[in-house]
Structures are given as C-alpha cells and as structure tokens.
Amino acid sequence: MLLFIISAATFGIFYLIPRLVGATPETLATRYVGRAATPETVHLIAEKLGFYDPLWLQYGRWVKAIFVGADYNLGATVEHCPAPCFGYSFITKQPVWPELVDRLPVTLSLAIGAAILWLLLGLSIGTLSALRRGSFLDRSAMTFSLAGVSMPIFFTGMVSLLVFSYTLDWTAPGGSYTPFTESPSEWAYALLLPWLVLALQFSAQYARLTRAGMLETMGEDYIRTARAKGLRERDVNVKHGLRAALTPILTIFGLDFGLLLGGAVLTEQVFSLPGLGKYAVDAITNNDLPKVLGVTLMAAFFVVVANLIVDLLYAVVDPRVRLG
C-alpha cells in the first residue's frame, strides 16, 4: 500500500510536474532523440513512449507491467519484459528490473561492509569516550568525530583516493569493483577504501550517539545495582550499560542501513561503484524516467522494510515493548 503511494508520487514528480510547468509530449520526447532530430522524429518518439496518452493511462500501463509484464518493440525484434517489469529504459533499451537486481549486490556489499566497520568503530569509540568522559581520549575522539560528521563523503572520498590509491598505491583506484563471486580478494580490495570512507562518516555519528546514550544509561539506577552486585566493571559497562544504550542506536542503524541499500549515492559516485546509487544518479543525469522510477521504488521498498524490521527488532531488544 505504502509502496503504491510512493510509486504514484514518484510517477507524478517525473511525469505530472513537467506537464504542469508547460512541457508538451514533444518537449519530453526531445530528451530521447538526437541533436539532429526532425520534428517528425520527435513526434514519432513521443508517440512510441506513450506521452500523448492521459497520465492515468501511462501510470496504469506502468503498474500493469509490474504484474503481468509488457512487450517492447525494438525494430527488428520485440522484447518481452516479464513480470515484475519495472519499466523499460528509454535510453539503454533494457528492462529496468534485471538491472536493479544486477546492481543490488554492489550496494549490498558496500553497505554491509561499511556497516560492520562503522558499528565496530562507532560503538567502541563512543563507549570508551563515555566511560572516560573529559579525558584526552574522549576529547580527541569527539573532535575526530565532529570532523568526520562534518566532512562530506565527496571530500573525504576524493582525498583518500588521491592519497591512498594514486599517491601511495595502497588501495584500489576508483571503479575497480569485482563481484564477490568472481574473486573475494579483489572484491575486498576494491571496496576497502569505500568501506572506510563511508564507515568514517557513519562511525563518527555513531560514536557521538553511543557516547550520549552511554552517558545517560551509566547514570541509571540499575548500573548502580550492577556494581553493588560486585560485577566486574567491564560487565557493568557492556552487559548493563551498552546493552541499554544500544536500543535507540539500533533504530537509527536500521533506518540508516535501509536508506543505504537504496544506494549510497555519494560514495558510489566518488568511487564509481556500479551500485543502485550510481544507477540512480546516472538515470537522473540521462533523464531516463523508467530507471528513475524503478530505483526510487526499490529504495523506498528498502526503507519501508528496514522500518518494519526495526520495529520487530525493537520488541526483541526491549522486553517492555513486547505485547502481552
């Protein structure tokens, strides 16, 4: 249901709004013809892409294709785009769905690797900072994380590529993604720097969150109880303190991760990784509406699913939320 609303909204943004600001079917079609195109060619393409039809019909056709598929005339041949057919690219003459499926592992690789790194880094730095509040470690960690939060990925990404890949030659240059199934070592080598750069940004944020959360929970009565039981300080911090501080972080993590699965746009752009984010950017740059629609819907799907999982996990993590 939610996905339907999102799809309709996205469809509206890319198809309805241009109409409202005065674009004709021809001006829409102009984007998909060459620079030497005659008005006849433009008309032909507008007709072929269905731009003359009423908007509801265009949307209906698009939704129908998702469930039953659609056929596309390629001149010499006709291609059937089987369900779920999330549109057919005007420009690359490819069904969108297989491309999305093809791009997903890249984004998934990037997101999972970076998430592991940033959780490890963020949680440990944040916890140590909170426990040694005001110490040199705390202050330098928080300065570092402020820097990490404020420096955008296209800056850290470019600089780190320049330093680690092109000057020191330690890491892979941009655009060297290799699928895990082909070569796990090359896969990791190519993703190492993107992981680190993406993780840096997030770990900075998570360090701050963890620190704040830990400072709050470490002042709770149950921490005093844990100490009064004679628990080792490490157990007090981790099993009692961190465990409670983790809950809100889990929520944010779920949402961040879901958002990231829709495409780590900047990271993929800077490192030329062929993931969903890069796909979205390229689709928007080329005005390839079916691709834009497809990738938007996919991203929305991940965010919705991530929300759902977070809600479920919340009940697992916090017994007070459980029903009954």
């Binding site: 092109y166 655009g175 030329s272």
Partner: peptide
C-alpha cells in the same frame, strides 16, 4: 572501457597512470 566513472576520478587516474 569503463563506463559511468566519476569525472574527477578519471583525471586523477590518468595522472597517476592507473588509466
């Protein structure tokens, strides 16, 4: 041939000899 490569990255790789 690699497609859809970040334009600034292309320049850096050319200068470093990676491209």
């Amino acid at each position: 041939v690699q497609l859809n490569v970040n334009a600034d990255d292309i320049d850096n790789r050319l200068l470093s000899g990676d491209l």
